[in-house]
């Protein structure tokens, strides 16, 4: 299964024959191996796979945070490989929203300051109406002037989601956004992302190894050993779990489970 690009489709981001190799000689690791995939606009896509399968690497390459060894990545029609560091920086600032697993916020800034940080880095003001709407959507009206240290993990992650959404990016990329959260807080964050797709038409790409999280997505892409192993539309946690189990049996040597 090498081709998952439908030329008639409109993709927010895509990778074409992407390879990413770490190290040299004996220690060479193929974190990504000939990956071709597209992420349709306005959809919520989850990338799943066991630990070490290359999920984070794929996300980093798509965001221009990491260089590809081979192949090409596109954001909309922009090919990232040809961009300078400065252009990549602007692209991340203006066209991508990030949510990491942990350490998403600057400790010296209030929640509100963190949310508008990309805009102020660009020297812009955020659209106040939109800001209000996003803040209301993530339920943080009462917490805007607290610092990260004064917020719970779930609240911090919701601030991060708000930051990712407020710039109306072409795509929101989230790497295990619920990895550090208890299940209730995790559910809140996932619901937020789901709502962003349903109500705001946002494109979301989420890396996870949690079947429950994947259940919030419109479709799931399975990675194993740096390759695309499978797809699933309209996933449910049970189906994803079954698929993963089968997958584990097949690819027994893919690496350790869990984080």
């Amino acid at each position: 299964m090498t081709t998952t690009i439908d030329p008639t489709n409109d993709y927010a981001a895509r990778a074409e024959h992407v390879a990413r190799v770490h190290g040299e000689g004996d220690t060479v690791v193929r974190a990504l191996d000939d990956v071709t995939i597209g992420f349709p606009r306005g959809r919520f896509t989850a990338v799943m796979g066991p630990s070490g399968s290359g999920k984070s690497t794929l996300l980093h390459c798509l965001a221009g945070l990491d260089d590809v060894t081979d192949g090409a990545v596109f954001l909309g029609d922009t090919e990232l490989g040809s961009l300078t560091d400065r252009q990549l920086t602007r692209l991340r600032r203006d066209r991508i929203g990030f949510v990491f697993q942990a350490f998403n916020l600057l400790p010296t800034m209030t929640a509100l300051e963190n949310i508008v940080l990309p805009a102020s880095l660009a020297g812009r003001k955020s659209d106040p109406a939109w800001l209000d709407r996003v803040v209301a959507a993530v339920g943080l009206e009462q917490r805007l002037h607290h610092r990260p240290g004064e917020l719970s993990g779930g609240q911090q992650q919701r601030v991060a989601v708000a930051r990712a959404l407020v710039g109306r990016p072409e795509i929101v990329m989230a790497d295990e956004p619920t990895g550090n959260l208890d299940s209730r807080s995790g559910a809140e964050v996932l619901a937020l992302l789901r709502d962003a797709v349903n109500e705001l038409g946002q494109t979301v790409l989420m890396v996870t190894h949690d079947p429950v999280a994947a259940g919030y997505a419109d479709s799931v892409v399975f990675l194993a050993d740096g390759r695309i192993a499978d797809h699933m539309q309209a996933p449910t946690p049970d189906r994803v779990l079954d698929r993963m189990k089968a997958f584990d049996r097949v690819a027994a040597g893919a690496g350790a489970r869990g984080e």
């Binding site: 920086t89 991340r92 600032r93 990030f98 350490f103 600057l106 940080l117 880095l121 930051r163």
Partner: peptide, 16 residues
């Protein structure tokens, strides 16, 4: 380091 990295990831230019 992580703070500075985060800043860069969400779009802070080197000069900033």
């Amino acid at each position: 380091t992580r703070e500075l990295g985060l800043l860069r990831a969400i779009g802070a230019a080197r000069s900033q």
